[in-house]
């Protein structure tokens, strides 16, 4: 049985990664865990707060699901920008891919699936570390991994689509600095979103990261609510709209 076309494009990425994974694993696997230890154990021991404000959680229990999703999204954002410019422009290997039976939409999908897979893998490592540190309260916590994957997809699909519309990487740094980093800090990851002024709180809620963090926290604490379905829906919409946009831009870029 031949692999589905879309996964053949993913296989290329896996092949390249298999030669480089050791050098790339520090930033995607080790660094997030170190961050959790520093913030959760180190900083957390200094944080004295009314337990009610952290939904009755210890600091490390609060930030573990937040950092789990946020670091996965951060990795996904990076791999959705520069590598796409490489495929399309700098190295041009996308143009060779579409001379095979693969279609531009397969090239897009293959790239996004790979990005999502890698973020999901880093979430697995993070979850294991968080569990060992006692930051996961419920067996439902395993669901934080697919949540991190879905949230990564909700970023990877539209960002990969956007990257393909660009002729240079000039705007990529701006996106990371002006969008991804602020979202990382202010999406209920390190402190509850209720601490933010109303306007900023509303802004954070517009983007997928806060929804992913809320879902992951529900999983690691085992405290689900009906609102979680809304979070799922938001993530699904971002992923679906981004996916459609991506299939269209890749077709325009690679088959004109």
């Amino acid at each position: 049985m031949a692999l589905p076309a879309i996964l053949r494009a993913t296989e290329r990425e896996a092949r390249v990664w298999s030669k480089l994974w050791i050098s790339s694993s520090f930033s995607t696997l080790i660094a997030p865990v170190l961050l959790l230890i520093a913030m959760g154990v180190g900083l957390g021991s200094l944080v004295e707060t009314d337990p009610a404000e952290l939904h009755g959680l210890d600091y490390i229990e609060f930030i573990a699901p937040g950092l789990l999703v946020a670091t996965a999204v951060q990795a996904a954002a990076g791999s959705s920008l520069w590598p796409v410019m490489a495929g399309q422009k700098w190295l041009g290997f996308y143009h060779a891919m579409v001379t095979s039976p693969l279609r531009p939409g397969d090239v897009f999908g293959g790239q996004v699936i790979w990005t999502t897979l890698r973020s999901t893998m880093s979430a697995v490592v993070f979850l294991v570390a968080a569990t060992l540190l006692g930051a996961v309260l419920s067996a439902w916590g395993v669901l934080a991994v697919p949540v991190a994957g879905l949230t990564s997809l909700a970023f990877a699909a539209p960002l990969t689509a956007f990257a393909a519309t660009q002729d240079s990487d000039a705007k990529f740094d701006v996106i990371i600095r002006m969008a991804i980093v602020p979202l990382y800090l202010f999406s209920g990851t390190l402190f509850p979103i209720e601490q933010l002024p109303l306007g900023l709180r509303a802004l954070a809620m517009l983007f997928p990261l806060w929804h992913g963090v809320e879902l992951a926290r529900a999983a690691t604490t085992g405290a689900f609510s009906i609102g979680d379905l809304g979070h799922l829906a938001v993530l699904g919409v971002y992923a679906a709209v981004g996916w459609r946009w991506g299939v269209r831009t890749f077709a325009r870029r690679l088959a004109s």
Partner: peptide, 11 residues
Amino acid sequence: LVIYGRYFGLP
């Protein structure tokens, strides 16, 4: 060669 062949779904 290998990866390009894989794009064609060849074993």
